[in-house]
Design a protein around this nucleic acid. Sequence first.
RNA 1: GGGCCGAUAGCUCAGUCAGGGAGAGCAUCUGGCUCUUAACCAGACGGUCGGGGGUUCAAAUCCCCCUCGGCCCGCCA
Length: 572
Amino acid sequence: MGPSRPGSPTPSPATPTGRRSSPMGDPYEIGTGEHRAFWADAAADEVETRVGDPGEPIVIKGGVSPSGVPHLGHFNEIMRGYFVAEALRERGYGVRQVFTTDDRDRLRKLPRKLADLEWNVVGLGEVDAGALGRNLGNPYTDIPDPFGCCDSYGAHFTELLRRSAAAIGVPIETVSNTEQYESGGFDEAIAHVLENRETAREVLGEFQNKVDEEYVPFFAQCSECGHLTETITDVDLDAETVGYVCADVTAGDETIEGCGHEGTATFREGKLPWRFEWPAQWVTLGVDFEPFGKDHAEGSWPSGETIAREVFGLEPPVPMVYEWFTLNGEALSSSAGNLITVAEVLELLEVEVLRYFFTKNPQKQRDFDVGSLDRLVDEFDRFEAIYFGDVEADDTETELAERAYPMVAPENAGRDDRPIRIPYTFAAVLGMTDDRDLRVRMARRSGHLPENAAESEIDAALERVGKARAWAVRTDNAFNYRLAETLPDVEFDPATAAALDELADFISAESPDEGTLQEEIYETARRNDVPVGDLFEAGYRLFLDEDEGPRLGPFLAAMEESFVVDRLRRDR
RNA sequence: GGGCCGAUAGCUCAGUCAGGGAGAGCAUCUGGCUCUUAACCAGACGGUCGGGGGUUCAAAUCCCCCUCGGCCCGCCA
């Protein structure tokens, strides 16, 4: 389905198969031809058809404006490209994954939340908001870092992006737009656009009504106030300069006032408008594949690919649209402050689980529901188990696991042994105590740790406990409980008290295994005429100060016997 | 108003590109494990495939219309 553009004279005709043929690249059409279990292979198929010089590496690009705290949504730009890059590398191609930071863009509004380099998220009020406000309209790289640690506002948030890419284990080359402009990397593209500004006007005019005779596709930076102005009065191609007036600029609902200065700027002292800047990046970086969000699918992409062809004479990269994520059902937004950073996510999940999240079909909107993360982790565990052949699955699931797992967890793929995975909710249960030995005993008794597991394997498996515990605390769900270190304030009726004492005596005398102990709880309750449920509840109250908990027999059997006995007797 | 993406079991989703059997996991229920307690095993229940129309011997799948959620069609990016 080719995106039709306003003013397009010929609607795409239907082909006999029902699909429309179109000279335009369809950013929703990821891959044609044979069926692929993994979307990244379908995209890679498409990229392969446009490979030129086999000696040159394939270039896959993503990019964002460093406008605020990088959040989960931004990782589409990295992970979607990453999986396609890996699919191509696996086929023997050299691939560069570059990431452009659009840091010469204007700061248009103040974000509600910022974060320092350690990912501590703070409100706007905790930094010098006034200093930021005075910089509205200026390029991100010209604004002082509100935290004072990086060269600029743009550099600060670019650094956070770089760190989160590293945290998720994806090697990317970041390319700063500002540096590209300053070093002259865009000179040729700018000269080309300005030289052909008649064509540029015509082409952009097909997509945007406001393009008039005066329109010049370049913004100059005012030498007096630093604002980017759109009012270009003169173009000197030989000198590679433009004349400008620093006029008011409308950005969204706000008007950014210009200072009125009239001056001259070089091509390195300004920027291309986005609709031209994007194709200019393709030209200068030789981009072959680029994923982008649905917001670009109907506006930027059709104009971009047309500009690429008709202004730059360039075959645009293979496009791919991804749908947006929501967070707990709400739109993600840096500026509104509804966000979760990768650092936060990685406190709750192993990195391979997060990477797995991105193997799902990019064309479906997905909710990242923190409350249901256990389901995501369970799904990953199954995915992994299918890869290792430990569970049966249908062909589609099996193909996907075989293909994608090595890209999700390359350090585990191909190993004879596989990582031990404690189910996430059970790991949350283990989070009730910080005692490693107790965790190990409980996990063993529940069958989640093989008896012969090596210490290093156990340590690796227990890493999930801290994350699951963080999840239980963050969501304050049913798994958020702790082993009561001291005796909770409790009172029991005489029958229950007697039953608890008997149970203590039994454990002291018999040192029962978990099954025997579980059975004895029932027996003790019946002997003392206490409803079974009441005795269980008394147990949970004593040890967890909760009404419910994990299976009591294995739980008590796993703990140090003298402690259990004393606690049942309400001694400590 | 026009264009685009999505909607499949209670929940999370696969299957749609290539038309033919309504699927998986979880949850629930039942049974089992000397046992109501976040473990484990077995089985069962569960669907107008968002709605309607069309094409076809046959439609979740192709075509048209509609509903709902999201995006784009000003500027900016």
